[in-house]
């Protein structure tokens, strides 16, 4: 559902950045590090994650990501359904670029993606 929503929002906002999808934190790490598959190239510098995922959740994924010298500079945005204070704090302690609570309305989601897109265009990212 979230993947479909994101793809749809990218399309309607004319965002042409390629999207790579992973089912959970572990698969995402495998894809980024090239474990059991060729690593994604170029390395995606922007990562959107949910916190609640099977096998490896968002927080655990972030911990692993920040340990990796090649990947620790990635900008990670949390997009999740819950805003428990503890999760927000934990995520920012792992230097997320933003914590966004998924809105119920698709229109609001579209706005959030549009805002993120302008932000990505504005900022300089490492090569």
């Amino acid at each position: 559902m979230d993947v479909a929503a994101t793809k749809r929002a990218f399309q309607s906002q004319n965002i042409e950045s390629p999207i790579h999808v992973a089912a959970n934190g572990k698969v995402a790490l495998d894809m980024l590090k090239g474990r059991g598959m060729p690593a994604l190239h170029p390395t995606p510098h922007i990562i959107l994650i949910d916190l609640n995922m099977p096998e490896m959740g968002g927080i655990e994924f972030l911990k692993e990501l920040r340990k990796d010298p090649e990947l620790k500079a990635c900008s990670v945005f949390v997009m999740t359904g819950q805003n428990s204070e503890q999760n927000v704090l934990e995520a920012y302690n792992l230097n997320v670029a933003g914590y966004i609570v998924k809105p119920i309305q698709y229109d609001s989601f579209l706005e959030a993606i549009a805002t993120l897109h302008s932000f990505w265009k504005l900022i300089e990212l490492p090569n």
Binding site: N52, G81, N83, Q105, Y106
Partner: peptide
């Protein structure tokens, strides 16, 4: 609290999104 805030909202978001689509 988790069930209420997360599990109940996910299908609701799907309903809302799908109808918009």
């Amino acid at each position: 609290a988790y069930i209420v805030s997360h599990d109940l909202k996910a299908p609701l978001r799907a309903i809302s999104n799908l109808s918009a689509w």
